[in-house]
Design a protein around this nucleic acid. Sequence first.
DNA 1: TCCGTTTTGTTCTCGCGTTCACAAACTCCT
DNA 2: AGGAGTTTGTGAACGCGAGAACAAAACGGA
Lengths: 230, 230
Amino acid sequence: MPGNERATHVTARTPTDAVRDIPEATVARLPVYLRALTALADGGTVSCSSEQLATAAGVNSAKLRKDLSYLGSYGTRGVGYDVEYLRYQIAREIGVTQDWPVVIVGIGNLGHALANFSGFRSRGFRVVALLDADHTLHEQQVAGIVVRPFDDLEQIVRENDVAIGVISVPAFAAQDVADRMVSAGISSILNFAPIVLTVPPGVDVRKVDLSIELQILAYHEQRKAHGEPV
Amino acid sequence: MPGNERATHVTARTPTDAVRDIPEATVARLPVYLRALTALADGGTVSCSSEQLATAAGVNSAKLRKDLSYLGSYGTRGVGYDVEYLRYQIAREIGVTQDWPVVIVGIGNLGHALANFSGFRSRGFRVVALLDADHTLHEQQVAGIVVRPFDDLEQIVRENDVAIGVISVPAFAAQDVADRMVSAGISSILNFAPIVLTVPPGVDVRKVDLSIELQILAYHEQRKAHGEPV
DNA sequence: TCCGTTTTGTTCTCGCGTTCACAAACTCCT
DNA sequence: AGGAGTTTGTGAACGCGAGAACAAAACGGA
Ligand SMILES: NC(=O)c1ccc[n+]([C@@H]2O[C@H](COP(=O)([O-])OP(=O)(O)OC[C@H]3O[C@@H](n4cnc5c(N)ncnc54)[C@H](O)[C@@H]3O)[C@@H](O)[C@H]2O)c1
Ligand SMILES: NC(=O)c1ccc[n+]([C@@H]2O[C@H](COP(=O)([O-])OP(=O)(O)OC[C@H]3O[C@@H](n4cnc5c(N)ncnc54)[C@H](O)[C@@H]3O)[C@@H](O)[C@H]2O)c1
């Protein structure tokens, strides 16, 4: 859970935006709405209702409207939402109107796939470096980017003002990599290694864990099979 | 059970097992506990307290104890938990004491990484087939398994009693693949494509979405930068 | 056996998130 | 202009999950 132990004495910087505290559950859905809006825009849709958008995003329309209400009143009653306008407002709220520089550490099986993932650039991120401890990988190009030594981390973070790091190294090395990232100045980490990372306050960690997802599916699958002898 | 009312999750009632309705939030944490216990066991630990295990799993000890209480009373007051015993009980509850057969559809960048992922076998799953529509991939081996035509799906599902499918095809093809999976008999899907899948009731879908995770990080990162001028 | 220590299992309370339901606001048609 | 029809934005009710706090149970030592 990202800490919001700010709150104490924040003088509102922008007069227009009040300090709006968007619920975490809503934040997690905004990217889904953004994607749905992009798909609608690509399909030529100019305007849409909350019902349409909710269907495209796979949620309840009431939930969608409530979520959007945290951002402001960007719709028109009796009409709906302007797709392009709403898309921009959500992108601005998330912070993906400009690209975020990202480093990927661990260019093995998964790291290769991530480096080749085109969704990075199209969704507000730019891979500025691929790092690996294995020197046999250095100088090689992956997805058009040269793999560099892990020890270049600090320099790269400094020069590119990198705030977000991706960890795709084996579990035993993940905590070390995280520590180095944090001390280099990275404050948001996306972790693919199956291990619980410990980081200081102020640093956000999100994990993507394939095994956990499969095991959750297995639990429900077992229930289905068990309850229905057929 | 003559009724054909199929809600999302049928509450199965068996005479032996009391109706144990494990909260979804708890189900999502059980795999984490399982992994922590495995790590402790590998390290030679025979017994542990809820405090120890909670630390290893990155949660609050009260939450851990509450979660475990849904499974039963597997600890000893004043002593703690037997690591191996608890590990087995959780594995049994999740349903990973035997291996689940899994098919992976879409052997591109990501599919290759998934096929090579050793965590499958060690955590209760067995990849029985790799499928792709691209015939230039067929007959090739990936991670020791031959890539087969997508049209073999039905036969493979039938012969291996496959319940879980993984989708790592491009977004535009994902819904079609999901439909084919469902009609072939698969009832749990792990989807890596950035699209909302529509499936009939009784089929579980979980998504792993890299872009969404990054965008959530970006949102918080933007807030940090904005709220802290110092 | 009895008492202090330790740690589990559970109860209780609070806050967050979801959903319902409706007033407000906008468009269109007569 | 006015009324009918639509759709947004939001107040309120409700249910679930998180965490604190404590009673119950096991162990060990005297
Ligand atoms: N492959 C998958 O599909 C998959 C799926 C889910 C999770 N994961 C997890 O992702 C991680 C990577 O998986 P993988 O299959 O790519 O493994 P891999 O072994 O193929 O690649 C790991 C890479 O990390 C590098 N590395 C090791 N220690 C390092 C360090 N200290 N600093 C920098 N680089 C270092 C290695 O040189 C190697 O290139 C693992 O933790 C794995 O459990 C992988
Ligand atoms: N590469 C990543 O790190 C990454 C990360 C997150 C999400 N994703 C998503 O995962 C999916 C796959 O990504 P990728 O990088 O592996 O793409 P890719 O293009 O490398 O591979 C896609 C594979 O799917 C196959 N395919 C296409 N249509 C098919 C069909 N109808 N049936 C069977 N197979 C079919 C293609 O032949 C190809 O081999 C995409 O949706 C992507 O957005 C990828």
